[in-house]
Write a protein that binds this DNA or RNA. Sequence first.
DNA 1: TATAATTATGAATATTATTCTGTTTATTCA
DNA 2: TGAATAAACAGAATAATATTCATAATTATA
Lengths: 159, 159
Amino acid sequence: MIIENNLTLDKIDLAILRLMQENARVSNVQIAKDLEMAPSAILERVKKLEQKGVIVQYTTRINPAAIDLKLLAFISLKASDSIGCVDTAKELAKIEEVQEVHIIAGDDCYLVKVRTADSASLMALMRNSFSKIKNILSIRTTIVLETVKEQQQLKIPEY
Amino acid sequence: MIIENNLTLDKIDLAILRLMQENARVSNVQIAKDLEMAPSAILERVKKLEQKGVIVQYTTRINPAAIDLKLLAFISLKASDSIGCVDTAKELAKIEEVQEVHIIAGDDCYLVKVRTADSASLMALMRNSFSKIKNILSIRTTIVLETVKEQQQLKIPEY
DNA sequence: TATAATTATGAATATTATTCTGTTTATTCA
DNA sequence: TGAATAAACAGAATAATATTCATAATTATA
């Protein structure tokens, strides 16, 4: 894991992040034009943002329906883990269909986001993968009927 | 919105998506080398994947902590909307701090994912933004203590 | 099987990334 | 405060990549 030392981001860094968050394939030249700077200076900053771990990844968002992943579900799990233990969470994280695993406050212990083709394959996933994980006491599955908004983009402050 | 006509993705398309999902800034030349094809052929396919809406966006994942967004929460909402009505959902989607809005099956009507600086700013958000939305009957907020996995990457089938 | 349509190749060109040097700007510390 | 030091920037040169386009190969279709 990359250590984040000097995490003070100035106005220019934030502007770069704003542009790149919108379009990861924007060119240095374009960013430079927008910010009225030299491409070489932009490149240097981008490299630094990568090194500092501010930029985690450049990723391509794919339409889930295009690859036949039409079902989205959230699963709340209770486990007999000691509190603060992430073993069960790590087991859940290993499952490919699992996009998110959060340890949450309150009644339930874990909140998991899962994407599968359909309800049958979700059922299969639960039977084959979830059931193999020890310490799980109960499962509550919530099917998403419609997604109105889904973005991982963050609200980047002005400065 | 782009209409998705010919959504039959072959093995090569899936391979391209797999590479680009991992790294949106991978070069055509690199993809071409990996798949043992000409860069021009790859480019043509990528353009088509964009046009067909298979590729939704190229985005940069930013470390939320780096821009002081350390709190993640899920909010379950009940509303007095008629079933299937997305008005409330659309209002929720307008809020910048809201990353996701799902209409869900079961007791609650909406599931919302929110990111803020801290619990104080979450409280402020709820007071200022959520409370302005009509028809909301009840709110249940779940704070995330720790995120073990968070990826929007999809499991791309072999062929 | 012939024809049409799609997809791929390879070379030429345009654009962009990257490197490097000199300069400016900011920061540190006596 | 002000010299010493470090960080950031600009601009030019070069390397790498994207893009275009004519042609060839492949695939689908009648």
